[in-house]
Write a protein that binds this DNA or RNA. Sequence first.
DNA 1: AGAGGTGGTG
DNA 2: CATGCACCACCTCT
Length: 609
Amino acid sequence: MELKFDPSDPKYIYVSNAEQAINALDELKKEKVVGIDIEGTELDPYSSILLTIQISSASISYIFDARQLNIDGIPELKEFLENTNTIKLLHNGKFDYKHIKVNTGIETANIYDTMLTEVVLNAGIGKAYYSLKDLAKKYAGIDLQKDIRESFVKMTANSRLTEDQLKYAALDTLIMFPIFEEQIKKLNKEGLLNVAKLEFATTRVVGEMELKGVHIDIEKWKSIIHTLSDKRDLLASKFQESIRPYFQSSALDLFGNVSDSININSQVQLMDLFNNKLKLNLPSTGDALLEAVDHPVVKILREYRGYEKLVSAFGDNLLSKINKKTKRIHPEFNQLGAATGRFSCNNPNFQQIPRNSEEAPFRTCFNPEKGYKLVTADYSSMEMRILADLSGDAVFIKALTDGLDVHSYTASLMFNLPYTDDFKKKYPDKRQAAKVIGFGLMYGMGPASLARQIGVTPEEGREYLDRYFNSYPSVKRFLEKMARDAVKNGWSSTPAGRKRWYTTPTASDPDYKKKIGSIERQAKNHPIQGTNADAVKYALVFLQERMKKEKVDGSLILTVHDEIVSEIREDQAADWSNIQAEEMCRAARLFLEKVPVVAEPFVGDVWEH
DNA sequence: AGAGGTGGTG
DNA sequence: CATGCACCACCTCT
């Protein structure tokens, strides 16, 4: 591969007035592909000063000084960045998209993202080697020096950029060309071009979602946490009292209070208490085990843990994430957070906020801005529908098409009972067993854990599985084929073409069977979970386009695996809720043709459904 | 700093 | 022989 630039002395032109900008854009308009990067003073787009926008051809980078230029007075720049003709190479384009949008209002379009591409090309393997520095090394053999990046933090609205800073800024755009060339070849070879395009389209939507953030009722949140932490503290004291007899010393602390005998949060100290003092002989302190232990100390601990979990994981920390400028929380969405193609979320993780309960109605604290509503829609039993469709099982599909209560119907097949409207009431245990299998199979569950969950012997668990598979023979064939192919090929794929790779163990590996088993389970799950993810991503893209087209005053704000939440102006919310469900179904139907797809919309003043 | 345990979500 | 997918946050301990 031939480089069109000198990594040690990259060519650039510094652009600081309108005339230079227009000349630069005239040159750039001739290119089919450009590289784009920004430099700013901070990671948070709302508090960062945008210093430069670098746009480059394969050989020269134009460094637009965003502080010197009156960007509103150069409509050519907006036209260029928003055009859909020029391919814009970016690395983690979501970041640049957000900074450019907040600082200039420009919505960068037609993104090719070198980072997302690398993750798509390596899903399931080689975790966390996706920085621009890694890719420069891997694809062009170039060592990028990143230490200059820190110097941008100290910049102000007036300070001059140094030669070193400008060269660094230029190189970050130029370096993406050789990476792009090589990645495109791989995308084509692996049939991943369409998946990559889906990710590129999604990344702008995710950028907008992160910029919008989520509104929170701070007082309500504080009040819930306050109540929960009081209860927790009370239980902690009760715990210490109840174990004191087992400890000899009751030392006083500096303030004359009786000090705690053990740290209630330490599993080491709990194990000592359980086994040496209480003689309970427990292998661990997990709740699944403690559930079956009939001892007052254990009962208090379990109750304590319930509150401790909520207070520590969802307490004050979440409030510290409220953005000073926007007064909203801006969680970070990683659109390729899971090897299956699913999103993950952090800072904070909105995908693990507890579901509303009487005592801890956390989700009701997330509400719309005044004059707006939250519109929530989730796919109904999506993964089950995917399994039915992909396996092509005629009986399973018919049950879904006829709108039956699938778990009851499955149980009726398994146990040779008539399917009736009151089946759930008449045979709750049988229905429950069918339900557990229905879900467990999608994770590659075996007879032992099935038996554990429904409280039967392993032999009976095996029999239940057989009965299930006899009812839906194609499901069995489908899952086994997924497992077999993944072990044979070293990868699995969703119908959309999204791949996940596996590191197959060598025959001499002592854990060979265990590892193969793990691959088989992952491969059974991947097309199911991955297709759900593919559908949600298409839905996000469709929804964003539709919102713009219909001039709806609102934003997408959250996605939680099979759910999408938007914040919509009051008078438009009802209509939009139907559109949202409709677009989600349209997205899913790209992959599911044999089963009906259902998305249930809900309009409300808080996050719930 | 990183691992392991525990537990919240879909 | 063992055998449930995908995450992230907080805690303790080394």
